[in-house]
Simulated scan of single mutants.
Amino acid sequence: MKFWPKPFAILFLIFSVLLVACSDESPSPAREYHQLETQGVQAVSAASATFIANILTSGKEPILQHGFTWGRTRPFADKPGFGTKYLGSRTGTGTFATTVEYAFTKKSVYYVRPFVKTANTIVYGNMVAFTPNP
């Protein structure tokens, strides 16, 4: 009977131990933060637009502030010239919307996304593009 060379036996032993040690049967933890979805932009003109979003799942922390932020560049939250509409605190899931009055530049592409702020986090929804009508 032929034996494996020592290096192969050692490697086999290491991989076997790692395989057993890495198997985790515990479920992943529940989402601890809010999840948002941008549902769209309606009634877009050079002077206003209606933003619509949905809170899909509730996080563990209460919502201190929610609303929308928009601008002409991606990402825009850290750049001058972006707009923010604050809608206050709220509880639970569901749709929220607001109409903003703003001097949008005609035929320019803007981006909007919803946000939720808690004591420890700010969560943003997906970014959606829109163009003001002339």
Rank of each mutant, 00 (worst) to 15 (best):
V17T: 11
L18C: 13
L18S: 13
L18E: 05
V20I: 13
V20Q: 09
A21Y: 07
A21I: 03
C22V: 09
C22G: 12
C22R: 12
C22T: 07
C22I: 08
S23C: 08
S23L: 10
S23V: 14
E25G: 08
S26Y: 00
P27E: 07
P27V: 04
P27H: 01
P27G: 02
S28N: 05
S28W: 07
S28I: 01
S28V: 05
P29W: 04
P29N: 08
E32P: 00
E32F: 08
E32Q: 02
Y33F: 01
Q35K: 05
Q35M: 05
Q35S: 05
L36M: 04
L36G: 08
E37L: 10
T38A: 02
T38H: 04
T38G: 11
T38M: 11
T38Q: 06
T38R: 06
Q39E: 14
Q39R: 15
Q39W: 11
G40N: 14
V41A: 05
V41L: 10
Q42L: 15
Q42C: 09
Q42Y: 15
Q42H: 14
A43W: 10
V44K: 12
V44N: 12
V44H: 13
V44W: 13
S45P: 13
S45G: 15
S45A: 14
A46P: 02
A47C: 06
A47E: 15
A47D: 15
A47G: 07
S48I: 04
S48C: 09
S48H: 09
F51W: 07
I52F: 11
A53W: 10
A53G: 08
N54Y: 06
I55W: 05
I55V: 14
T57S: 08
G59Q: 09
G59A: 08
K60F: 11
E61N: 00
P62S: 02
I63K: 08
L64N: 07
Q65F: 03
Q65M: 03
Q65T: 06
Q65H: 11
Q65I: 02
H66Y: 10
H66P: 00
H66N: 12
G67Y: 10
F68S: 01
T69H: 01
T69I: 05
W70Q: 08
R72P: 10
R72W: 00
R72L: 02
R72C: 02
T73P: 06
R74N: 13
D78M: 13
D78C: 12
K79T: 11
P80L: 09
P80T: 07
F82H: 15
G83K: 03
G83H: 07
T84H: 01
K85N: 13
K85V: 15
K85S: 15
L87C: 03
G88H: 07
S89L: 06
S89W: 01
S89T: 00
R90E: 11
T91R: 09
T91Y: 04
G92V: 04
G94V: 09
G94D: 06
G94S: 11
G94P: 03
T95H: 05
T95V: 14
T95Q: 13
